[in-house]
Design a protein around this nucleic acid. Structure first.
Length: 781
DNA sequence: TGAACAGGCGCC
DNA sequence: AAAGGGCGCCTGTTCA
């Protein structure tokens, strides 16, 4: 009889045995359920509770949920360790109570139960003792690589590199690992990687299928430091997994190894070493680098990285290949896209250092004067006297206290996610109508944001050639969009205050070119829905999109070109409904948006304020959908399909899993339906922009044009182009972007809009210097 | 004292 | 019945 304990945080009403079925076999198992505490509060749990538990009394102890898991083991994330044997006795398990409102966890839960049964019944196959070797001599490296090269039965190899930094210019390669079969790997210390070894590696790369996990990173280092070249056919297990499950934060090699291989948590020793090292040497975890790891610990872990990679590859690749949709995305978008992003990351963003420095001085002085103004208010002064602290505009806690308690301003009622009174920009703006200080605070926050997030971040991050090399990520979004991170998020540069964009300046003789897709989402909504009437808006091509929509939907008795002047509120309503379609918002949001617009017009143009009611918004939506009935039908059909299947494919073949549609929580279910509809439209727009940028980049390479694509921002492409080339480059970009990729309105390709100039603000020089006089001096330095 | 969380905010 | 999609990163605060 196997004695088993189930421990959860507190007595719940979940019958665990209903979900962990194999434990119901009374002839085999004796099961006891225990609870950590009667109290739900985390604090009580941590401070006061000692559960009387004699570990030796049980053969296995299930830990249900994260509290129990972290209480007895080092495991804090149940999801990643569920079903696994920890410390020989404990088995963390996802709480089945979760499944009702988080149905997407069902698969992971079942896998975990299955795994735990194998552990308990002893049918778990322990990982075969791996063949992991650390290589520290050139001769040995040569011997291994030559063997791999010459063995024609070896078709696939996995590669990985360990480095001292995330950036090739700031670090070096410590070693390279390679695996040519499951449970096998070598780690070659970089000291022995001579030209001869590199040559051998190149021959292997050229003759075998190469697979890496996050190849973008390794290719960058291996090319930069060793000049290794990789064919476009390099496979990437991170991209493959992203296609199979787009959930954020699940694509890491460690996570996947635990979930899909028998290698388990193979980096445990390394983690422990790192923790001990940081403690002993009093350094921050973030400052820990891999060169601090002794070879004896490193080699096995590094070699296993490639063993895990090859195992994952053998699992994932067939799954992607047998799906026509996913393989289309893999071969046409992700695999070449990864190489493309590598190139544009390497191209880097051209910054003017002197302008950045001028901007820094400008921000400093603006901030100083704003603060001086703020502290001149007697209320602020008195607050500081009373509390003995200096009012910090960046502290929501202080602002809340100051505005609502000390000043006694009445909160507009907006609350944060945790229920506290919000002090965000919208609230400050509202309060600004009643007191001068909130507006001052808002100004300080905005200037401070530009200073700390942009200017001060960029300056020390520039490479020697005054370019900034940041990351563009292909696997971080559920929508198929790219994201940008690292040295700078290029997708969130301030739009209205052009000071940062003006610092992105082409080298002498070059010009910054930016091409945007025009109302891309609505264009593809028109294509995907097949709504001819909506398509006709694009075909007529007469000016402003939202005006055209308003004109058609509401039968406005004027020319389209007059809509903006004569019926601004109606145009805004059309615009809000269009946005509502893309985001899934309803009448309330449309009403609020138009009302806000009317309020702004009232304040700035002295027209009477009129509220746009929810009932008017409802009517507007109804009229809109009556006009574009085919669009309405398509939206309804898509929603129905999402609700029925819990997933949907984009036109390019991306799969979006939306298992929350099955949740008992109606809010969550509805949210997933909105996400799904948004995904259908947003992903296509984003893929079109990416494919266009990739084609443009290839033309630049093929024709050796003196131009560099250096960033993508959702629906725009940025390039630095030799000035003489600009007209033909813009023409080429347009032609390439408007290529029919199977999703065009007949005779009416997607609209594009190009801008160009010396810098990314696209201001005329005169206007720029007028706005930022400091730049004139900076430019002549 | 470092890490994790909260609140907030930049972009499309 | 109610319903805004997708991101990354800053500072301040809290907690171990």
């Amino acid at each position: 009889m196997i004695k088993i304990a189930l421990i959860d945080k507190c007595p719940g009403n979940t019958n665990y045995l209903r979900h962990i079925e194999f434990l119901n076999d009374g002839s085999k198992y004796e099961v006891h359920t225990l609870h950590l505490t009667e109290h739900v509060s985390k604090k009580v749990l941590k401070r006061d509770v000692t559960l009387e538990l004699d570990k030796d009394e049980f053969d296995y102890i299930f830990l249900i949920g994260s509290e129990a898991s972290s209480y007895f083991t080092h495991v804090t994330s149940v999801m990643s360790h569920a079903g696994q044997l920890v410390d020989e006795k404990f088995i963390p398990m996802i709480n089945p109570a979760m499944l009702a409102f988080k149905p997407d966890a069902k698969k992971a839960f079942d896998m975990a139960v299955n795994k735990s049964e194998k552990f308990i019944t002893g049918t778990w196959e322990a990982p075969t003792e791996g063949d992991y070797i650390g290589i520290r001599t050139e001769a040995e490296a040569y011997k291994y690589l030559k063997r791999v090269r010459d063995d024609t039965s070896i078709k696939v190899i996995a590669l990985d590199s360990e480095t001292t930094s995330l950036h090739p210019r700031e670090g070096h390669i410590l070693g390279i690992s390679m695996s040519h079969r499951v449970n096998q790997g070598v780690y070659i210390e970089s000291e022995v990687v001579t030209d001869q070894i590199t040559e051998l590696m190149q021959e292997i790369i050229d003759s075998k299928t190469v697979v890496m996990h996050n190849a973008k990173f390794d290719i960058k280092f291996l090319h930069y430091h060793l000049r290794l070249d990789f064919p476009p056919t390099v496979d990437d297990t991170m991209l493959l997994h992203y296609l199979l499950d787009e959930t954020a934060g699940t694509h890491g090699l460690k996570h996947l190894a635990i979930k899909y291989t028998k290698l388990g948590e193979y980096d445990r020793d390394l983690t422990i070493f790192r923790e001990n090292y940081c403690k002993a040497h009093k350094i921050k975890k973030a400052d820990f680098t891999y060169d601090l790891i002794p070879f004896e610990i490193m080699y096995k872990y590094a070699a296993m990285d490639t063993a895990a990679t090859i195992e994952l590859y053998l699992k994932f690749k067939p799954l992607v290949d047998r799906s026509p949709e996913l393989s289309n995305v893999y071969y046409k978008i992700l695999r070449p896209g990864m190489r493309f992003l590598n190139d544009i990351e390497e191209n880097g963003v051209p910054f003017s250092k002197s302008r950045l420095e001028a901007a820094k001085i400008l921000m400093d002085s603006q901030l100083a004067s704003l603060k001086e103004q703020l502290y001149s208010y007697k209320e602020v002064h008195a607050y500081e006297e009373t509390t003995g602290t200096i009012l910090n505009a960046n502290s929501p806690v202080q602002l809340r206290n100051f505005l609502f308690t000390y000043l006694g301003l009445k909160s507009p009622g907006k609350r944060t996610a945790t229920g506290a009174l919000s002090t965000d920009a919208e609230v400050l703006q509202e309060l600004g109508t009643r007191h001068p200080v909130p507006s001052m605070i808002l100004g300080i926050k905005q200037t401070g944001k530009i200073k700390s997030t942009y200017i001060e971040k960029i300056l020390p991050a520039l490479d020697r050639d005054s370019r900034l090399r940041t990351g563009f990520n292909l696997t971080t979004t559920t929508s198929g969009r790219l994201s940008s991170s690292g040295k700078l998020n290029m997708q969130q540069l301030p739009r209205d205050n052009k000071v940062v964009k003006a610092c992105i300046k082409a080298r002498p003789g070059y010009t910054i070119v930016s091409q945007d897709l025009g109302t891309a989402e609505m264009y593809y909504a028109a294509v995907l829905s097949g709504d001819k009437k909506l398509q006709s808006i694009f075909q007529s091509g007469t000016g402003d999109f939202h005006s055209s929509i308003a004109h058609m939907v509401f039968n406005l008795p004027c020319e389209v070109s007059e809509v903006k002047a004569l019926y601004p509120g109606v145009r805004q309503a059309a615009k809000a409904v269009s946005f509502g379609i893309m985001y899934g918002s309803g009448a309330a949001k449309v009403a609020a948006s138009v009302t806000e617009f009317n309020m702004q017009r009232h304040l700035s143009e002295d027209v009477p304020f009129v509220e746009f009611t929810e009932s008017e918004a409802k009517d507007a939506i109804a009229t809109y959908f009556a006009t574009y009935s085919r669009l309405a039908k398509w939206l309804a059909e898509s929603k129905a399909q999402i609700k029925k299947n819990g997933f949907i494919f984009s036109a390019f073949g991306r799969k979006r899993r939306l298992l929350q549609v099955f949740s008992s929580d109606k809010g969550l279910a509805a949210s997933d339906v909105r996400s799904g509809v948004n995904f259908l439209i947003q992903s296509v727009a984003s893929d079109i922009n990416l494919l266009a940028a990739m084609d443009i980049h290839n033309i630049i390479k093929d024709k050796k044009l003196d131009a560099k694509v250096f960033a993508l921002v959702h629906d725009s492409i940025l390039a630095e182009v030799k000035t003489e080339l600009v007209p033909e480059f813009i023409e080429m970009m347009k032609e390439v972007t408007q290529r029919d990729r199977g999703f065009s309105i007949p005779n009416s390709p997607i609209g594009v809009d190009a801008e160009w100039g010396e810098d990314y603000s696209f201001y005329e020089k005169e206007a720029l210097y007028k706005k930022f006089p400091e730049f004139e001096h900076a430019d002549t330095q």
